[in-house]
Write a protein that binds this DNA or RNA. Structure first.
Lengths: 200, 200, 200, 200
DNA sequence: CATGAATGAGTGTTCATTCAT
DNA sequence: TATGAATGAACACTCATTCAT
């Protein structure tokens, strides 16, 4: 009599262990054996839920994306314009452990993404459609007159996205210097600049 | 007399091959045998010039840093204030093949750097002191009245550095969307914003 | 249920193959692949039962010691004094294939033991406590008046141990000259000398 | 103009370096590079004087044997019977640094000797003809009435040789216990026993 | 469903050896 | 004669993967 297991639930449980390993040991230190050890299961069990190691890595990233997008929906619920934009930007920075793990996760795949156009595009897309989301919220804020319309919304969104990824990277690589406090301050400053006219 | 080889010159020749492999295959695909193949020499020859693989990787990154800083000196020669700042920012973006390779090189080490505090600090520092350089040029531009002094110079530098790394990353991961043309336009826009008062 | 293997039993089976390789090819010729070939398994299987090659070599020597001491207990069961001493001496000479293999095994480690104080002491002790055993049996035989008490028991034991190792070595290196027959005769003669007064 | 080098003299100089390396690092740690470093010459120079590594090792052992036999001649000059025998026995024990090195040298080859009958016999014979020499001196001492003639000279010689090698081995493996002092005492005792009747 | 024994390709590294200079 | 650059095979070891149980 086979044990009954919720396949999807088990998969997610396993993938969360993969996250932890990736964030802790980098992709270089993420071996099947280490993952298995982290899950508490034997190494062979991973073969039941994933076709191979690449499938594990891709699935882990995809699940992370799914979770991130779901959290957006939740956090942006009822917000509009600048308030929503602000929430979205802050949500995509490593300001707590959960989101720092997510950021590390992204970073960890970049090396693989560089190596292969195919991997880069087809398999693990760069991530959730953050740029589009930023763009539409910027446009909304502009329509509501909350921020200047001098720049095209896509360009404002592009700058925000660039800052998000740049700052996130620096926070990971130089945690002593780019503390969470400093990170928050810098991004708050940036958001404030968007709503305040600059005096020469 | 034995066959005479300029040790330093040969080392640099080998390290440039390492760059190409790292940029093409990622750190994951960079094996001693692949490197050797790229150099055109046998695998064993690397043992003559480096103690082990880690030495190869660190040396490759260090040489890149040395070259980058040297190029700064050259390009900034005779420039001051905003002109110098502009040159420095543009020089640190993947706007041609040489600098794209450099950017890929940086990216490739991030996984290792995140995984190990030791690696991050002691071995391959994050890179050349770009932030400091940006900071002093921003301050200079502020003193010359070329840009607003509303923000502290370090914060302006921090934003520029964030944008440089964020945009560079996007250019690498989504080259179709973030083309060199677009990248240049966005950064030019950013520089322009610094010198022009914003109207609400 | 997974394939069930008695871990200890399999380890011993593997270590016996290591013995054969060491005795046949010397420590110099004992590579992982050769051992694997001797076991009939693949090379990788050794990784399941041993941490590394040194662990294999040490374990092989330790198992041999364990077996030797166990055989002593068995053979000396019920014997006392000179009879026991005689049995112990004879048991430690390469008079049959099994004990020849054991002797070769000892010999093979001497090079490593000499090179490193650490190895010599901490890892593979010189071997089972033969000297102590000889000493106590000599003392027993002296007490029983079976042999002269002119020399201290430890000195008699020391001489016997020296002869055992010296003769064993000669038997291994010059098997044509130092045949098992001759070896047995010489040691019997030695034992006889201990019980018989010498006439000038 | 080629440098003029005394080929034989240079060979011996190199081989003495090989001795030192063998005694210090064991045969396992004796690599061409280490030898070269010990000689102070480059690694390639060994190729001029020896055909390959095995030739180096064999030559080193042979030179040692030559030196040993030469020393015998010197030390035994003018001695006869028991006095000569005593001198020969003492000369073959590791009682000073020079002879300890010789003993280590012998030991170091045993592993190789086990592996190959061919090596054992044809290439590096077990050593200088110590047994024959002992035999003839024992016979001489017996003829002179210095020691008992009860045992055949060859058997007495065999026992002495066995003790020499056994004690030498123990001195190398357990230098704390089998000190030079103790070694000398034990062998003196043995020689004394040969000249003194045993009382029951 | 889950195990872990077993595999074999691939890794970084060491090393004796060759050879142009 | 002496060098050391270069080679390539062999080494111990790691790891993703397969599969009988």
């Amino acid at each position: 009599m086979p044990k009954v297991v919720d396949h999807l639930e088990r998969r997610e449980e396993l993938l969360e262990a993969v996250w932890r390993v990736l964030a802790r040991d980098g992709i270089h230190g993420t071996t099947i054996r280490v993952i298995a050890n982290e899950t508490g299961w034997s190494a062979g069990v991973l073969a039941h839920y994933f076709t191979d190691k690449e499938d594990i890595l891709i699935s882990a990233l995809r699940l992370s994306h799914t979770r991130i997008v779901a959290r957006w929906e939740e956090k942006l619920e009822g917000l509009e314009g600048m308030a929503a934009l602000r929430e979205l930007v802050l949500d995509n920075l490593p300001l707590d452990d959960e989101r720092e793990l997510e950021t590390r996760l992204q970073l960890v795949y970049w090396d693989r993404a560089v190596a292969s156009q195919e991997v880069r595009e087809a398999k693990w897309r760069h991530g959730p459609p953050l740029l589009d989301r930023l763009d539409s919220l910027v446009a909304e804020a502009q329509e509501r007159g909350e921020i200047s319309s001098r720049d095209k919304s896509i360009e404002v969104a592009e700058r925000l996205w660039g800052l998000i990824d740049g700052y996130s990277l620096h926070a990971l690589l130089e945690p002593q210097r780019m503390t969470r406090t400093r990170l928050r301050k810098l991004i708050e400053q940036e958001l404030e600049r968007m709503t305040t006219p600059m005096e020469v």
